[in-house]
């Protein structure tokens, strides 16, 4: 029998015994798998970039010669810049085209909405190869676009649209649009309707509402889309390879060549490391920019 009346002191209760909570057994296989199949290989990759490598084998100790070679090569910087520029361009295109699509989706309901969503998801139905093939059919000398242009008499000769930068950009835009649209849908839906209603009541035109009220509030959400699209475009390989043609070079293609035909694994590893690092850096900077923009847009409101 205990008297529970009177002062109720929490110290009456002994503290819980702290059982050491280690990683539960069911998680071990997956964790070990990841460590062996991802962490270890990545470590080896990194090591290949800072060791003396001849062909596919390690010859010597730590050396930054490979990095030196790369970073002092004008060609490499050109490649780097082009990869960056293309990724940025694709991102902007996706932004410009993706916003209206996302906006449309939020303003439409029922079966029409479902149809549009399926259309947005369509590129994801096909594999990279298939997509590249489709664009070859469309952009080739005997393809759809040229057919349209020549048969309507807009041009006399078929235009070369394939196997150059623009075909890669077009192909990537199609591939990456869904990744921009879907985050944007959430971002637009999160904007409180009252803000646009209020602007409407004040007599603002839709144009103004779109740019001054809606877009600034979606910036944080759009950031997700931007970083995703950029990262994916920056490291894209299949489309660059197949739509770019023989003379087109991209960072990922450079790495591929180093690893396979050129068998210069040290260079491939170093380039891959730089690819990763620069991608990460850009994403971080993008996020900072977005955060600055968000603060600025909040001040406007």
């Amino acid at each position: 029998m205990t008297a529970a009346g009177g002062a109720l002191d929490a110290s009456l209760i002994e503290p819980e015994r702290r059982r050491f909570r280690a990683i539960p057994a069911p998680l071990l296989p997956a964790t070990i798998m990841m460590i062996i199949l991802l962490v270890a290989p990545l470590a080896v990759l990194l090591s290949y970039s800072v060791l003396e490598v001849n062909g596919a084998a390690v010859e010597g100790g730590i050396s930054f010669a490979t990095f030196g070679r790369l970073l002092s090569s004008r060609y490499f910087w050109f490649l780097f810049g082009r990869t960056f520029a293309i990724a940025l361009g694709v991102t902007l295109l996706c932004l410009v085209i993706g916003y209206p699509i996302a906006f449309l989706i939020t303003r439409v309901h029922g079966w029409l909405r479902a149809v549009i969503l399926v259309a947005v998801a369509a590129p994801l139905l096909t594999s990279g190869i298939i997509r590249a093939f489709a664009w070859i059919v469309i952009l080739g000398k005997q393809g759809l676009v040229n057919f349209a242009l020549t048969s309507t008499g807009l041009v006399d000769e078929p235009v070369s649209l394939l196997f150059q930068v623009r075909s890669v950009v077009i192909g990537m835009t199609q591939l990456l649009l869904p990744f921009m649209v879907i985050p944007l849908i959430s971002a637009i839906q999160d904007v409180p309707a009252e803000t646009t209603h209020a602007a409407r009541n004040l007599g603002a035109s839709e144009f103004r509402i779109f740019w001054r009220v809606l877009i600034p509030q979606t910036v944080p959400g759009a950031a997700a889309g931007i970083t995703l699209v950029f990262a994916l475009g920056y490291s894209e390989f299949t489309l660059a390879m197949l739509l770019g043609g023989g003379s087109f070079n991209y960072l990922s293609i450079y790495i591929y060549d180093s690893m396979t035909s050129l068998l210069d694994w040290g260079r491939g590893a170093a380039a891959a490391a730089l690819l990763l690092a620069s991608s990460l850096l850009t994403v971080v900077i993008l996020n900072l920019v977005v955060r600055r923009l968000t603060r600025w847009s909040r001040q406007i409101n």
Binding site: T2, L8, A10, L12, I13, P15
Partner: peptide
């Protein structure tokens, strides 16, 4: 003498 607390939040004071 059964008692229970969650962290420092008491749920049951010692009781019989």
């Amino acid at each position: 003498g059964v008692a229970k607390s969650y962290g420092d939040q008491p749920a049951l004071y010692p009781l019989d």
